[in-house]
């Protein structure tokens, strides 16, 4: 049981790391704010799978599920607020380009 679970964890782990790389690359490389938000969502997906997996491997599914449900609710609120901020920026600048943010630097 235990050896099986460890193997399961390492296989899932590789894919979770790939998802993390995809999300981070998206946030760091894009200049479109909406795409940065999509990258954030991909990162959250990776974390969700990691938490569920940790619960499954330790036989603690109920605990992991209750944590993940809380996480999903929080995720929705954060995404809604961020989308609101992006829309308000769009109303000012008429663009989703993040490079305009650079004029704050100095």
């Amino acid at each position: 049981m235990e050896a099986n679970n460890i193997q399961l964890f390492s296989i899932f782990g590789i894919f979770i790391v790939m998802l993390f790389i995809a999300g981070l690359y998206c946030i760091l490389m894009t200049r479109n704010m909406m795409r940065a938000l999509i990258g954030l969502e991909i990162l959250t997906k990776a974390v969700t799978v990691l938490l569920i997996l940790a619960g499954y491997v330790t036989g603690n599914m109920a605990f992991a599920q209750s944590i993940v449900i809380t996480l999903i609710i929080i995720e929705v609120v954060v995404i809604a607020i961020t989308a609101g901020v992006i829309l308000s920026i769009y109303r000012h600048t008429n663009s989703l380009d993040r490079s305009t943010i650079r004029d704050l630097k100095g």
Binding site: F20, L24, I27, M33, A36, L40, L43, T44, A46, V47, L50, L51, L53, A54, G55, T58, N60, F63, A64, I67, L71, V78, I81, T82, V85, I86, I89, T100, I101, L104
Partner: peptide, 25 residues
């Protein structure tokens, strides 16, 4: 724009904490 930067970096920070929570779990 300041808020957007803050949201983005703070979200990355919380994602890091959550993955750590996953490992600790």
């Amino acid at each position: 724009e300041g808020a957007f930067k803050y949201i983005l970096l703070s979200a990355i920070a919380t994602i890091m904490m959550l993955s750590s929570i996953g490992l600790l779990l």
